[in-house]
Design a protein around this nucleic acid. Structure first.
Lengths: 212, 212
DNA sequence: CCATGAAATGAGAGTAGCTCTCAAAATGTA
DNA sequence: TACATTTTGAGAGCTACTCTCATTTCATGG
């Protein structure tokens, strides 16, 4: 999951371990991202072309596509899923697993937003503004959903491919997606962690105070 | 909502009422859709170009884009939302609204699949196979989600823009989306209405038989 | 330190979705 | 039949994205 978090650049400690080649690749990746963010802030998403990004990052357009499959991915890509899965597995086995999910989600959100609040805001903002970005986000969320399925199945001893587990996971994803949009639409005024908390409560107990 | 239903072509009775112009427009629209479905069945989605579609439908490529904003829309577009909203409003006020939703969803699904089972299958199949189609579907589902927000808010007297209502609606949408995918991935062997029933149960009561 | 192999990059051509403009054709109306 | 409006076609143009191939950059063993 990566509701709207910053890039998880490998820590500087690791980087000096790597060969010149690897380090250069990381630098290029960052250069492209940085250039993209800057250009989008200046001109908006649609007005920013790959050629412009390439020029500012001082690479060729070909290279941009070598690093990122699509324009949306430059803004969004990150790999939080394995970390999330790891954390979910490391929760005590006797903890009710809905609590585990709540804990892990809150944790993921916290580190994500804290790491680079500005990028988090830009990303959610683009999710609201640019349909292509929103779509790409949903797509990556659904990958996270499949991962959640395996985690939930492990924990509950059920089949990860069963309709029930899949529906549960995707409803969770859908809810969290909407939470991100809500946050951005309200100009990031709310505390995102609290919003996530409320979301998980709704998902667990349904809408409050109504004739259900 | 339109989980994977057929085109709602206006009934023939209405059509003769319209002028030549309107009738021709409807015919063109249908020709483009028919051509697209046929070509996709022959060659697959990606291999089918707009030019081919235009040629088979005997219109110019420009006209194709005049009728459908994107290629995905040729496969997916329909407007069931108003009907869904209408049906939801016509449910008795004292019925628990979760029951109303269950009833309306089941009804929508039933008419949708019955209307043209083959198209329903093709659509869900494409949702699984083609990321662009899936994305477009999710996008249109989220529109349905907003509509659901107003309906739920009407019924429960809550704010349609509140986080809780929005999260609830989108988790519903996410769950139903996954149901469609599940149906297609299992080669449409299951009875779709039953799947929807199970989905709504999960959403209402969570996963069964587990340590929650 | 250099030669050899591998990996990364750049240049460029090509495809297809999609937009926009403008003139021609089809249709409704007086 | 003549005029006004709507619909269509033709075509130019933009951009994301793919693929190929030559060139450059780095790693490594002698």
């Amino acid at each position: 999951m990566r509701p709207m978090t910053a890039a998880r650049t490998s820590s500087p400690a690791d980087r000096s371990q790597l060969g010149l080649r690897e380090r250069k690749k990381i630098k290029t990746r960052e250069a492209i991202r940085t250039a993209t963010y800057a250009l989008i802030k200046e001109q908006g998403y649609d007005a920013t072309t790959i050629d412009q990004i390439a020029e500012r990052a001082e690479v060729s357009p070909s290279t941009v596509f070598r690093y990122f499959p699509t324009k949306e991915d430059i803004v969004l890509t990150d790999e939080y899923d394995p970390i999330l899965l790891e954390e979910l597995r490391s929760r005590p086995a006797d903890e009710p697993w809905t609590d585990s999910i709540r804990y892990v989600m809150r944790e993921a959100v916290r580190t994500g937003v804290e790491e680079d609040a500005e990028v988090a805001r830009l990303r959610t903002h683009l999710m609201v503004q640019v349909p292509a970005v929103r779509s790409r986000m949903m797509q990556s969320m659904s990958v996270t959903g499949r991962m959640l399925c395996t985690a939930i199945a492990e924990r509950t001893g059920s089949d990860p491919d069963s309709l029930e587990v899949r529906v549960y996971a995707m409803s969770l994803i859908g809810g969290l997606m909407e939470t991100s949009l809500y946050w951005a639409e309200n100009d990031h005024r709310d505390d995102f962690a609290s919003l996530v908390d409320r979301t998980l409560t709704v998902l667990a107990r349904g809408l409050p105070h109504e004739n259900r």
